[in-house]
């Protein structure tokens, strides 16, 4: 009897080789384990055995059944694997390019802006915004720049006609609308809208009535910074700007404050920097930004008491920083949007 069982196991083993599909497998399995299968038939013989032989036969039967089932589990998993693989198709050449082979990147001016914003964000400065269309009061008068001041020359400012109406750009009185010449006007809107202490930066687009060439652009971008608090000093300004310039241009940067003039700060300075890693501009003083302590007249114009509040402000050109950092020699590249230019600045700023 036990020999019969061994023959059935041998039969099952032999049948595995011819299984190449699920139906083969079903058939082969039924021939042994099915209702009419050889093992099923053999198990029926147990009834005819004497009582004392039954346990030994039962044991042998179970063992044979386990062996056979395990064979069929193995062969099933093998044909399933083959079927899954077949579904994947022919193996491919992974060195072929991606389709579409396309990636988008930030515009280099955005990348610089984000970096600067992030540096100041860590110092507690948050972004404030205002409109690009401004009025003479917000762009000049409120910044202590009187009507006959050279900075207000119509030669340099783009105006709208006196009749033009702007629904979402408020005026102080009846002054004309214009395109802002600097982001300093955002200081004014912010100080009028929010209460000090304030620590804000205002990245944004500005306009000058300039002929476009390698260093001039009809529009360009600045980042204005403003800190209003009690007892703000020159050293606070220097501390913030030195930190910003180190983070932007590296630890080896040297800076200096060079006396200058802006109507809305007193004292006023140009900030120069010198660094060893700036290509052609390495190791010489280059002008990078303007700054100063907020002029008391400006505070009065936005209804802050200069005896209680003081502050500092600064402004830096995004194009300028980007050009220095990457060695770009023509500002027009930023506005031409040639892929061969844009794709060069996908790395760190």
């Amino acid at each position: 009897m036990e020999n019969d069982l061994q023959a059935i196991v041998a039969q099952a083993e032999a049948s595995q080789a011819s299984i190449s599909s699920r139906s083969d497998w079903d058939q082969a399995k039924a021939a042994i384990l099915g209702p009419k299968g050889s093992l099923t038939q053999a198990s029926k013989l147990i009834g005819q055995l004497p009582r004392e032989e039954k346990p030994a036969f039962g044991q042998a039967l179970n063992q044979a059944k386990k062996q056979i089932e395990s064979l069929f589990v193995g062969s099933l998993s093998k044909i399933e694997q083959q079927a899954d693989l077949a579904a994947l198709g022919v193996p491919y050449d992974p060195t072929l390019p991606a389709v579409p082979n396309r990636s988008g990147s930030l515009h280099p001016l955005s990348a610089t802006r984000r970096k600067v914003v992030s540096i100041f964000r860590k110092l507690g400065f948050t972004v404030t915004e205002a409109t690009e269309v401004e009025t003479e009061w917000f762009c000049f008068d409120a910044l202590n720049t009187p009507e006959d001041h050279p900075a207000r020359d119509a030669q340099d400012t783009l105006f709208f006609s006196p009749e033009s109406k702007w629904a979402n750009v408020s005026k102080k009185a009846k002054e004309a609308h214009l395109l802002r010449t600097h982001t300093s006007s955002v200081q004014i809107r912010t100080m009028l809208r929010e209460k000090p202490p304030l620590r804000v930066i205002a990245p944004g687009r500005c306009f000058r009535r300039d002929t476009v060439d390698a260093t001039h652009s009809a529009n360009f971008h600045q980042i204005e910074g403003l800190c209003i608090d009690r007892k703000v000093t020159l050293l606070d300004l220097k501390g913030v700007l030195d930190h910003f310039l180190r983070e932007t241009f590296g630890n080896k940067v040297q800076t200096r404050l060079r006396p200058s003039f802006f109507p809305f700060t007193e004292p006023s300075f140009e900030v120069d920097l010198k660094a060893p890693n700036l290509g052609k501009l390495s190791d010489k003083w280059i002008e990078i930004m303007g700054c100063g302590l907020v002029d008391p007249e400006v505070l009065k114009l936005v209804n802050l008491d200069p005896k209680e509040w003081g502050g500092f402000a600064f402004g830096v050109g995004i194009e300028r920083i980007t050009m220095i950092l990457h060695g770009i020699d023509d500002i027009r590249h930023f506005y031409q949007n040639d892929q061969r230019f844009l794709s060069q600045f996908t790395g760190p700023v």
Binding site: L123, T126, P197, K238, G239, H243, P267
Partner: peptide, 24 residues
């Protein structure tokens, strides 16, 4: 400040009180 010069000055540590403002 103009006559004195500022090259020898070290900027202050940035010890500002926290500010609850968020980006616009």
């Amino acid at each position: 400040l103009r006559l004195r010069g500022t090259d020898d000055l070290t900027g202050s540590q940035l010890l500002f009180p926290a500010n609850d403002r968020e980006n616009d």
